[in-house]
C-alpha cells in the first residue's frame, strides 16, 4: 500500500468512476433529494459519514467474523444488517450529541439504509480485496463523489424551473436527461491518468 495507490483510489472514486455518473449507485436519493441546494448538501454530508463508517465496520466484520467462521456466503445479509444498525446508531447519537445537525438531516438519515451506494461501496471493497485503510479511503471518497454530484445536480435543477421543455418531460424525465448530460461531462475525466 503506497501513498500514490491511495490517491488513485480517491481520485477514481470522486471523478473517474463517480458513484452516480459512472457506476449508477445511489440514484434514488440523488433524484429524490436534489430539488433544493441545502438539503442536497446535508444528504451528501450524511452519506460521506455513513459510507466511511460502513466501509470500516463491514471490513472488520468480514475479516474477523465471517472469514474466521467460513461464512462468506452470508456477506450480503451481514452487511445490510450492519448498515441498518449503523444508521440507527448514528441517528440516536446525533439526536443526543448534535441536535442541530440532526434537525438539518431530518428524514434523510434513515433513508440512507436503502441507499445502494452504501451497500455498493461495501460490496466493492470486498470484491477488490481492499485492506482496512483502502476500504476506509474508498468509502469516504466515494461519499465525496456523491456529494459533488448531488450538489452540482441540485444547482442545475434549481435553474431548471425557468427552462421550457415539452409537458411530458415534466418532473423526472427532464431531471434524468439533465443527469445524463452531467454524466457526459464527467466522462471527460476518464482520460485522466494517475502516474
Amino acid at each position: 500500500m503506497t501513498f500514490t495507490g491511495l490517491v488513485s483510489i480517491a481520485l477514481g472514486a470522486i471523478l473517474i468512476n463517480n458513484f452516480i455518473f459512472s457506476q449508477f449507485l445511489g440514484i434514488c436519493p440523488f433524484m429524490g433529494v436534489s430539488k433544493k441546494m441545502d438539503t442536497a448538501t446535508g444528504m451528501g454530508l450524511a452519506v460521506i459519514f455513513v459510507m466511511g463508517l460502513a466501509s470500516a465496520l463491514c471490513y472488520l466484520v468480514n475479516r474477523f467474523i465471517l472469514t474466521k467462521l467460513g461464512l462468506e456466503y452470508l456477506q450480503t445479509l451481514a452487511y445490510i444488517l450492519v448498515i441498518a444498525a449503523l444508521v440507527q446508531f448514528v441517528e440516536m447519537f446525533l439526536k443526543k450529541g448534535m441536535p442541530a445537525l440532526y434537525q438539518a438531516l431530518g428524514i434523510y438519515l434513515p433513508l440512507i439504509t436503502t441507499n445502494c451506494a452504501v451497500l455498493g461501496v461495501v460490496l466493492l471493497n470486498t470484491q477488490y480485496n481492499y485492506n482496512f485503510i483502502e476500504s476506509l479511503i474508498y468509502g469516504i471518497t466515494g461519499g465525496v463523489g456523491f456529494l459533488v454530484a448531488i450538489v452540482l445536480f441540485a444547482s442545475i435543477r434549481e435553474h431548471l424551473v425557468f427552462a421550457e421543455y415539452p409537458k411530458s418531460f415534466e418532473g423526472f424525465p427532464i431531471a434524468l436527461v439533465t443527469a445524463g448530460l452531467l454524466a457526459l461531462s464527467f466522462m471527460g475525466f476518464s482520460g485522466l491518468k494517475i502516474w
Partner: peptide, 9 residues
Amino acid sequence: PVGGFLTLG
C-alpha cells in the same frame, strides 16, 4: 452511462 440516463428519461 449517459445513454442509460437519456433512454430512461
